[in-house]
Amino acid sequence: MDSHIEEQSSTIQVLPPNKEKIKRLWTIAAYLGIITCIEFLIAFLWPDGALKIALFVGLTIVKAFYIVAEFMHLGHEVKVMIWSILLPLIFVVWLILALLIQGDAIFLLKY
């Protein structure tokens, strides 16, 4: 059994590291880190308000884009694959809208 495995693994061809790709991955990691730092600064330096929340949501979507498109490789798949994953998430947009309106309505009933 052991000799059999040895024999097989000796035929496996190990390719050299794809330097360009690895560099790209570290660059994206740096982006994610920097965006998190910016969020951190905004949390303490920016005045509270709708704009602040919009900034947080915007930066979160940028981070999500990098993770999904690059780390999860979805950005490099075929179009039909990309849309099969992204389009169903429209339902979440509706969920956010419906439930936040609902929350507001309950607030008005309570106070």
Binding site: L99, G103, F107
Partner: peptide
């Protein structure tokens, strides 16, 4: 989203 809803109440 449920967190947001309850927070709004």
């Amino acid at each position: 989203v449920a967190y947001g809803t309850i927070r709004f109440t």
